[in-house]
Simulated assay, not measured.
Amino acid sequence: MSPVRALLALGRHDAAISDLGFIGMVVGEKADARSYIRSVLGPVHDYDALRRTELTETLEAYFASHMNLDRTKERLQIHVNTVSQRLERIGTLLGDGWQAPDTALEIQLALRLNKIIDDAPADRG
């Protein structure tokens, strides 16, 4: 499917390919996973790098725990208030609606791609 057809199928007549999120990466001419990850998780990664926090890890645990605070705190072995504070910070960084289904899907895909890229052996070619 062409990117233009994907936009039209999604009812996005006035959007750019970059507005398609993961669909744009899949149907676009060049798949650029790193740019996609950056577009979705950039503020969280930057915050983690600058302040040595674990917001990315918190996001991974939160989604792996089906967005349940108690399960997330158990997975991370931290207090539930710490989980709530981290999620509030994530909300500030990613914007309102980050937990909405479409946005949450984008975040989860970016987290998985990030893990795959990080865990892949270095390209020696």
Rank of each mutant, 00 (worst) to 15 (best):
P121E: 09
K73F: 07
K73N: 09
M67V: 11
L20N: 03
D19K: 14
K30F: 06
V4W: 12
V80T: 15
L55T: 00
V40C: 01
L7P: 01
K73V: 05
L94W: 00
F63L: 07
A49G: 08
D119I: 07
N68A: 13
L93K: 02
G125Y: 14
N68W: 13
A122Q: 13
A15T: 04
A100D: 11
L55A: 01
R112P: 01
G95H: 05
E57S: 13
R89E: 08
E29M: 15
I23M: 11
I78A: 03
L111H: 02
R52F: 09
L59P: 00
L105T: 10
Y36H: 06
S84V: 11
V80R: 13
I117W: 09
T72D: 01
L55P: 00
Q99R: 08
M67D: 07
V26D: 06
I90A: 00
V83Q: 06
D14R: 08
R5S: 15
S2W: 13
E54C: 09
A16F: 10
R75A: 08
D70P: 04
R52C: 06
L8F: 15
S2L: 15
Y36Q: 00
S39W: 05
R124D: 11
E29L: 14
R112N: 12
M67K: 09
G11P: 07
L59Q: 03
I107L: 05
Q108A: 04
R51D: 07
V40Q: 00
E74I: 02
R12W: 11
P101Y: 12
G95W: 06
S39T: 11
I116K: 13
M1Y: 13
P121I: 06
R75P: 00
Q77T: 10
I78F: 03
A122K: 13
A120M: 11
G125S: 15
N68S: 15
T53S: 10
A122Y: 06
Q108M: 10
V27M: 11
N81I: 07
V44E: 00
D14W: 09
I17C: 05
V40D: 02
N114A: 14
A122V: 14
W98M: 03
R34Q: 12
D32K: 09
V83L: 11
L69D: 07
N81L: 09
K115P: 00
T53M: 02
G91C: 13
L113C: 04
I37Q: 00
G95Y: 05
A16W: 09
G125D: 14
Y36T: 01
A31R: 09
V27I: 13
I23N: 03
S18A: 15
A33W: 03
Q77G: 05
I116P: 01
E74L: 03
M67I: 10
T82D: 12
F22D: 01
P121F: 04
V40G: 01
N68H: 11
R51L: 13
T103G: 01
A100W: 03
R89C: 06
Q99C: 05
Q77F: 06
A100P: 00
I23C: 06
L7Y: 03
L111C: 04
H66A: 14
V83H: 03
E106T: 06
V40Y: 00
R38C: 05
V40L: 07
P121L: 08
R51V: 07
G91Y: 12
R71M: 10
E74R: 03
A49C: 07
N81E: 11
D48K: 04
E54K: 10
